[in-house]
Write a protein that binds this DNA or RNA. Structure first.
Ligand SMILES: [Mn+2]
Ligand SMILES: [Mn+2]
Ligand SMILES: [Zn+2]
Ligand SMILES: [Zn+2]
Lengths: 138, 138
DNA sequence: TTATTATTGCAATTAAGTTGCAAATTGTCA
DNA sequence: TGACAATTTGCAACTTAATTGCAATAATAA
């Protein structure tokens, strides 16, 4: 799913195609999960005039539309990333803060839960923290 | 591990046994994961005079000492719970906000990660969101 | 091109958490 | 027990992430 496809989706849903929205999609399409402030910093660096409040509101909208996923890592700020083709999770390096994608088989977890509770799982958060390959060699 | 054992630990580590610390341990020992503000509200309800800043500082200390674990759910506030005997995760009802404990076998996840990356996992966050048994019947 | 409506930017506000510091409390030792 | 030194607490001020109200601006449909 590229920027063009998201902007089309946006209009199909009846939302207007604006400069801030296009620019924020561009930033998201070329990065790891970013906080709102980080998205805003990228915008500025690229010469954009978009306000940080608009950045907040746009990310909120994109999440509502299912374009991006919000993730909570160790700190209190939310991070966002485009939902690509495949569901995945993250390996977050506690030293260099780099984020790797990783895929795991979750079916077994959900089966185990079914045995313990009548709870109906709709989504889950799964993030791993540790030391990345690079940082281990230092 | 009961309140008495934690207060002993506290003194063994060279920290002083104070009223706020005892009272906060008492609150934690009888509840689900709580935010700092919720802990503070419990204290007040029980007639305690402890300040909210002390609550923040005490929870931070308890986490450092390994008495409690900090968890991040959907919102931006951190929650804390006593680390009981067994490692477990949570089923968070998106309707009534109730939290159930659940245990899952994680060994397989870690094996799968080993095959994909040199990353050394030290800890992980795993929380499930959905609708609890009760709320499904309404 | 114009009109209607959504969207944006700015300023002010809220909410969670942090920091500095003087006053109070704790544990230790005489 | 009582005094001392060091830790801990409470209060006020501050920081940071996020939210809200509203007038000005920009996007789309006619
Ligand atoms: Mn990712
Ligand atoms: Mn629990
Ligand atoms: Zn690293
Ligand atoms: Zn429920």
């Amino acid at each position: 799913m590229n920027v063009k496809e998201y902007t089309n989706q946006l209009q199909n849903f009846g939302y207007r195609l604006t400069t801030p929205r296009t620019e924020i999609l561009k930033v998201l399409s070329t990065t790891k999960p970013l906080s709102t402030k980080e998205v805003f910093a990228f915008l500025k660096k690229n010469g954009s005039q978009v306000d940080i409040v608009t950045t907040y509101r746009t990310l909120e909208l994109f999440e509502k539309l299912g374009f991006i996923r919000k993730i909570q890592l160790e700190d209190k700020t939310s991070r966002y990333e485009l939902i690509g083709a495949s569901h995945h999770h993250h390996l977050v390096c506690m030293k260099c803060k780099n984020i790797e994608d990783v895929q795991v088989e979750e079916g077994l977890l959900l089966n185990q839960i079914k045995k313990q509770s009548r709870f109906r799982v709709e989504k889950h958060a799964l993030e791993f923290f540790g030391i990345c390959g690079n940082c281990q060699r230092l």
